[in-house]
Amino acid sequence: MSQKIYFDESGFTGNNLLHPSQNYFAYASVASDDDEAKAIVERLIKKYNIQSGELKGANLVKFAKGRKAISEILEAFEGRIKISISDKKFALAGKVHEYIFEPCYSDVNSLFYRIGFHRFIANILYTEFMARGAGAEELFAEFESLMRELDGKGLQTIFSSSDASHSETLRMIREFAQKRHSDIQKELDSLADGETGKWVLDLTDSALFTLLANWGTQYEQLTAICDHSKPLLANQEMYNGMICNTKKVFSRLVDGQEHPVTFNLSGPIEFADSRTTHGIQLADTIAAAAVFVFSGKVDESTEHWRSIIACQAHYGSVIPDMEEVKLENTRSKLNALVLHQLHDRAMRGVDLIEGAREMIIDLTLSLSPPTYRMNHR
């Protein structure tokens, strides 16, 4: 029997990840069925005298009785909730790696993912953004504009608008992007040809896919019911490929741990109206609670929510991790050296792919204790 999973979001701003008042995006899911969801929603509406006749998380978090209703939902569905939450500025930093660096070594990208280079770039850019203010902010805004337009206009001089205030790291990233502009242009051209490219910075698709993959480890078959979403409607092909799929595939590409990358759908994703689909109202409320907690709001309710949400908000979540850029860590040192090497090769016009494996091995060994180096030569 297929398990129904309801999905909804909070903090959606599409391709605008620098929205000044929406710093977090949450995509929440809850395993239930129509009868259970309806019974709980109708009971809470009556108990807390919710006038709209519909649970809307963005409204409930504002008032004490609404937060009590949210607490009841989180308790009732504990163990049947999964959430993906993203810091949008950090997510944008991650997109810089995805669309500036990766196109330049896509044929051997697994080498760089295995050492966590993507996380290093995202975290160091985020650190620059939070610490440097205007200079880094202009770089982020320029990149966001590039990805919205997808025309590659000005790629040869990208990130030059505020180069005087750039740190050494931002300078290397700027110069790398300018020198490798033709690789980046090819990637943009491939995106510009399809409907998916219109939502290239949006976080909905990756959140939904990761949540479904993790639900797929718990249930043999899933029925996905989502609130209407333009980004999702534009990209149904990869979900349709999972209909009646019974293969369970896991990937170790990103961090060496096994992550599910397949699931079994009973049919195409169903899009429903939240006003008449009570399960979506529950997901909406959970998503709003997650954003409320991560935004730093503190009261009796959020302290209660925090422990529940923390256990359920790690499915594809995109959150900074400063351990990735602490140079006392060997991996951080390695990735800093890799950035220098990539920048150097770009500046000299040297092939980035040729000898990349050997480069990473040599740099790894250079940071290892002498006995380890001797044993691995």
Rank of each mutant, 00 (worst) to 15 (best):
M1G: 09
I5T: 00
D8I: 04
T13L: 07
H19G: 06
Y27L: 14
A31Y: 02
D35R: 12
A39F: 09
I40D: 05
V41E: 02
K65F: 11
K68P: 02
I70H: 00
F77I: 03
G79P: 08
K82S: 00
A91H: 11
A91T: 04
G94Q: 11
F101R: 06
C104S: 14
C104N: 08
Y105H: 15
Y105F: 15
S110Y: 11
F117R: 07
F120C: 03
I121F: 10
M130W: 05
M147N: 08
R148W: 02
K153C: 00
Q156K: 13
Q156C: 06
I158Y: 02
S160G: 12
S161V: 06
D163P: 00
T169Y: 15
T169G: 00
M172D: 04
A177P: 06
A192C: 08
V200S: 12
L201G: 02
A207L: 07
L208S: 03
Y219C: 05
L222Q: 04
L222E: 04
I225T: 06
D227V: 12
K230A: 15
V249W: 03
V254Q: 10
V261Y: 02
N264A: 02
S266T: 07
S274A: 09
R275T: 01
T276Q: 11
I286Q: 00
A289K: 05
F294D: 06
D299F: 08
S301E: 12
S307H: 14
A310Y: 13
S317G: 11
E324V: 01
R331S: 05
L337R: 14
L342M: 15
H343M: 07
D344Q: 15
A346C: 14
R348A: 15
I361D: 11
L363H: 13
Y372H: 13
Y372A: 09
R373Y: 03
M374G: 11
